[in-house]
Nucleic acid binder design. Structure first.
Length: 477
RNA sequence: GCCAGCGUUUCCGAGCGGUAAGGAGAUGGCCUGCAGAGCCAUUUAUCAUGGGUUCAAUUCCCAUCGCUGGCUCCA
């Protein structure tokens, strides 16, 4: 299989360092606000990568961090006059709830920046010792000029100018605030009145942003990993800095073999932003759409391209998703009674063809849109043969079909709790699905059946309409 | 300003050297007590514009325009 590697600007054959295992790190959110659709896009994109790699037989270890100490968090906590921990805990909890609803698989580890302060201090000390970093006024900076090759990271150009041999001029006064070079970035931030702090060899302070991901990777996955993921906006300088400081620390040639970056959500062809007022929080979208519709929307475009979010496009996703569910429901309701015949054999072949088509698409840098197209093509054929020609199916075919659906669920994660859904015939979640609801639905169905038998259509239609208004789709045979 | 990416039919959205997947919407038809679902057909494409390379370009190269991102916090 091939993946697009941001380091080399091209698709490459995917070969993890260990043939059976994939070590993967994804930059998680800074928890100072509720997750918006962009966070969901990133999270779902890498959940998909992880799922597909697992489907291919790899044992995937995925670490995703929480940045729980940072300027914005401190600022927001001060505004609200609460402790920064209270703030970050609140948003971590919300993030986890939302990602669970979006059917993300659990990560191997979700460390918080503040969990590993000691280790960060150790890494920063090492960087100073090795001559890559310097202390200045209680802060510590990474001197980018000491890192040969810094400017070439993520540069798709030949002959990028690189730094000559350079030693940090610690005997001089810094020219750029506390820094010797404007590009130097902070590893440790000196404490300011009113801010949370940790004790360090350089006095009170807190870690800089870039160092945390490097430290987490090394601490929880090792000095070299296979895949590092994150949003496109993190490429520079965050990932650039991560690579520099990590390899400076470990002395390894590489930090991550493949860097994967996901694209953005746009709204009406414009960037989604608070100032434009076109900002969508996932929690708000959940009020109007099933989380699986959101997930389906997100995987309907390729993870690297930007997706255009409009009310129209999310409704289209809803229609499409429902279309898949409807067909699955219909197959589920069929009672196997037939003998093997030519049509069924052909359909079984179609399952195999579709499976191969999906694998082909996903093997090419996780081509979800093409994979989904394969599913639709197969489902249309399925509908035509099964429900237009009224072919009887066999037990074997039904099993075969549901094994395939289960595979789809493994790869795309779009059919969680399918059995429940099929039993209830629900198109939308209606809150707590318990036995009472199911019984009431059955009751209503029976009443409608009776009415329709006596051709009292106006009444049965009214019941149908009112159920529909409640989010229950009733379809007459 | 510098760097990177994108511009495909009414809409969403693939393809990326041999004249363009899939879905939505719309219209007509089949089916149905009706509706829905489903099926069939049409809408369905001078692939932003202008040059160039090639037997052949939506796909490669150059320029222009438009949009987006990075250069400061950001998924």
């Amino acid at each position: 299989m091939k993946v697009y590697n941001s380091l080399t600007f091209q698709k490459e054959e995917f070969e993890p360092m260990n043939p059976n295992e994939v070590l993967m790190y994804v930059c998680g959110p800074t928890v100072y606000d509720s997750p918006h659709l962009g966070h969901a896009k990133s999270a779902v994109a890498f959940d998909l990568v992880r799922r597909y790699l697992e489907f291919k037989g790899y044992d995937v270890k995925l670490v995703k961090n929480y940045t729980d100490i940072d300027d914005k968090i401190i600022e927001r906590a001060q505004e609200k006059d609460i402790d920064y921990i209270t703030l970050s805990e609140k948003y971590i909890e919300e993030y986890e709830e939302i990602m669970t609803a979006l059917n993300l698989k659990l990560d191997y580890k979700n460390p918080k920046a503040t969990d590993i302060i000691d280790f960060m201090i150790h890494v920063i000390e090492t960087l100073i010792k090795k001559g890559y970093a310097y202390e200045s006024n209680g802060s510590v900076y990474f001197a980018v000029r000491t890192y040969k090759g810094y400017e070439s990271i993520f540069q798709n150009k030949e002959g990028e100018e690189e730094y000559e041999d350079y030693e940090i001029p610690t005997d001089q006064e810094p020219l750029h605030g506390d820094k010797y070079d404007s590009k130097d970035f902070v590893l440790w931030k000196a404490w300011k009145e009113g801010e949370p702090f940790w004790e360090s060899p350089w006095g009170k302070g807190r870690p800089g942003w870039h160092i945390e991901c490097s430290c987490m990777t090394v601490k929880f996955l090792g000095e070299k990993i296979d895949i590092h993921g994150g949003g496109l906006d993190l490429k520079s300088p965050h990932h650039k800095n991560e690579i520099a400081q990590s390899t400076a620390y470990t002395g390894e040639e590489i930090f991550a073999k493949y860097f994967l970056h996901n694209g953005f959500i746009e709204v009406d062809q414009e960037k989604m932003s608070k100032s434009l007022g076109n900002f969508f929080l996932v929690s708000d979208l959940f009020k109007k759409f099933n989380p699986m519709v959101i997930r389906f929307f997100l995987i309907s475009s390729h993870y690297r391209s930007s997706s255009n979010f409009t009310m129209d496009s999310i409704k289209q996703a809803e229609t499409n998703y429902q279309k898949l569910l409807t067909t699955i429901q219909k197959v589920n309701e069929l009672t196997p009674s037939g003998e093997k015949n030519g049509d069924l054999t052909e359909l079984s072949d179609r399952i195999e063809k579709t499976r191969n088509g999906i694998i082909r698409a996903m093997d090419d840098d996780f081509g979800t849109p093409e994979a989904i197209a394969e599913i639709f093509t197969f489902f249309r054929e399925l509908n035509r043969v099964l429900f237009e020609k009224n072919i009887n199916i066999t037990e074997e075919f039904k099993e075969n079909f549901f094994t395939f659906i289960e595979e789809l669920n493994e790869i795309f994660g779009i059919f969680p709790n399918l059995e429940e859904k099929l039993d209830l015939g629900l198109s939308e979640p209606i809150g707590e699905k318990d036995k009472l609801i199911k019984d009431l639905i059955d009751l209503t169905r029976d009443v409608r059946e009776a009415l329709r038998k006596r051709k009292i259509y106006d009444l049965s239609d009214e019941i149908r309409e009112r159920l529909r208004a409640l989010g229950l789709n009733i379809e007459d045979k």
